Amino acid sequence: MTGSSTLQIEGFVIISAEGNLADAAGVMPDALKFEGDQRFFTEALDRAALIVHGRNSFEDQANSPRRRRLVVTRQVESVADDPDNPNGMLWNPAGATFDDARARAGIESGMIAIIGGPDVFAMFFDRYDTFWLSEAPRVRLPGGDPCFPGVPAKTPQQLLAAHGLRPADRIVLDAASDVGVTPWQRSPD
């Protein structure tokens, strides 16, 4: 658990059959974008108090500029205002804890959405309350970027389970393409 009942840490990713979130060029291809999943993702981020992601991850949605965010980077010593985004902060985990960065961003409660990339997802493995794993099993991205460090030696599901998360019922987002999302949740202590 996050240590506070007023904060919820949730992860969000859509993956290919191999567990990849991007193609061999490091780009999320259109083949991995589905209307149902995009709608689910947008609605979740619209509820988020804070979004956390690496410098190469972003959601590129209509409300994106209005969302409060932490961008994980080595370009600052600890935490700094993002000169390119008045709603953004830059955070170097080597110089400040997540809780310090979150507090500096003014977030004391609500849902914190972790949206990638792989190393950012891994930083929160032991803190997620829920990880929303969307899967597009008919999409193949050979040689692509895996969603988590350790994939493909282990599946994303094995890695989530290894960190104490358990799957709940899958929600179908696009029946024609067999795309769905499984909430992986931490059992209450």
Results as ranks from 00 to 15, higher is better:
N63T: 14
A44C: 13
V52G: 05
H53S: 00
R69T: 03
N63H: 15
H53C: 07
A44L: 04
S64W: 12
N56W: 02
R55S: 08
Q61T: 14
A49R: 03
T42L: 11
I51G: 05
L45D: 00
V72P: 08
S64N: 06
R39I: 15
S57A: 00
N63K: 12
A44V: 02
H53I: 00
T73A: 05
R74D: 09
L70P: 08
F41E: 12
R68G: 06
A62G: 11
D60P: 00
N63A: 09
F41S: 12
R55V: 03
R74K: 11
L70T: 11
H53G: 12
D60G: 01
A49F: 09
Q38R: 15
R39L: 15
F41C: 06
F41R: 08
D46W: 10
A62L: 13
Q38A: 15
R66V: 04
L50N: 03
I51W: 02
V52C: 10
A49C: 01
Q38K: 15
R55W: 05
D60N: 09
G54P: 01
V71K: 07
V52N: 01
S64Y: 01
S64D: 04
L70E: 12
D60F: 02
A44E: 11
Q75C: 00
V71E: 02
S57M: 05
G54S: 02
Q61S: 12
E59Q: 09
E43W: 09
F58V: 01
A49G: 03
Q38L: 15
N56V: 05
T73I: 09
F58S: 09
L50K: 10
Q61I: 04
V72K: 10
R55Y: 03
F58D: 07
T42M: 08
A48W: 02
F40N: 13
R68T: 13
P65Y: 06
R39V: 15
V72Q: 01
F41L: 12
E43N: 15
T42R: 15
H53V: 04
R66Q: 10
E59A: 11
N63I: 05
F40L: 03
L50R: 07
V52D: 05
V52A: 06
R39A: 13
G54L: 07
Q38H: 11
L50W: 09
R55T: 07
Q75E: 10
V52K: 05
R39T: 15
A44M: 14
E43T: 14
R69F: 06
A44R: 15
F40K: 13
V52W: 08
E43H: 11
S64L: 04
H53N: 09
S64E: 09
P65E: 05
R39G: 07
V71S: 00
A48L: 06
